[in-house]
Simulated assay, not measured.
Amino acid sequence: MNSLDFFNARLEATISPMDYLRSSKDNPEKYFLMDVRNGPSEVRSLTIKGARVIPEHDLPHRLEDIPKDKEIIVYCWDVWCNTAAKAAKILLEKGYQVKELTGGIASWREMNFPVSACTEGDTDKDACGC
C-alpha cells in the first residue's frame, strides 16, 4: 500500500468531529451515532449528544437496535483506544456502512461540542440510548 492508498482508506473509514457535526446538521437522518465504549457506567457518564450507547461487548446481541439504512458512526475514548475499530469491524462484517469518529469523545469534548449526561439508571433511556 502506498501513501495515497493509505490516506484514501483512512478518509473512507473515518470522519472528524467537525465534519460529522456539520454533515449531521445538514442531513440529520443520514447518521446513527454510537458510543461503543466499554467499562463501568460511572466512567461513561458523558456521551456525545444524540448518541446511542451500545458498548462494544454488547454489540453482537444488539444488532437489531442498529438501523441498516443509515451510516453508522462509532466512537470510543480517544486516539489511543481501538474499541471503535473493533465495533466497526463487527458491523462491517454484518453489512453495515460504518465510519469511526476520529479522536473519540476526548476530541469531541476538547472542541466543546455538545455532550449529555447519561447513566445506565436513566429513566429517559431514549434521551441517551443507555
Rank of each mutant, 00 (worst) to 15 (best):
I72D: 07
R44I: 04
V115S: 00
S107K: 11
D126T: 13
I54P: 04
A9N: 14
A84M: 10
I73N: 08
C128M: 06
V43M: 12
A127C: 03
K25C: 03
G104H: 03
K49Y: 07
A127W: 01
L59C: 05
E93I: 01
Y96E: 10
R10L: 14
T119N: 11
V79P: 12
W108I: 01
Y75H: 14
E100S: 10
Q97V: 08
Q97R: 09
D65I: 03
K25N: 05
N112F: 13
D26A: 12
Y96H: 12
M111Q: 14
I73Q: 06
I105C: 07
A117I: 10
E120Q: 11
T83R: 05
L59V: 05
N82E: 09
P40K: 07
F7L: 03
L33T: 03
A9D: 14
G39P: 13
D69N: 15
C118D: 02
E42K: 10
I72S: 07
C81N: 11
V36R: 01
E64D: 12
V115K: 00
M1P: 12
W80C: 08
K30T: 09
I90K: 10
M111D: 09
A88K: 15
M1G: 15
A127Y: 07
Q97H: 06
M18N: 14
N38G: 09
N2A: 02
M1E: 10
L46N: 13
A87G: 12
I73T: 07
D19S: 13
V74F: 02
C81D: 15
K25T: 09
D78H: 13
A9V: 05
N38P: 01
H57S: 13
L4D: 13
L4R: 12
P114S: 08
A84Q: 08
A85G: 04
R109K: 15
E110I: 06
S45M: 06
N112Y: 12
I72T: 08
K68R: 14
G121K: 10
N112D: 15
F7V: 00
N8P: 01
P28M: 01
S45E: 02
C118I: 02
E42T: 12
G129D: 06
G50W: 04
K68M: 12
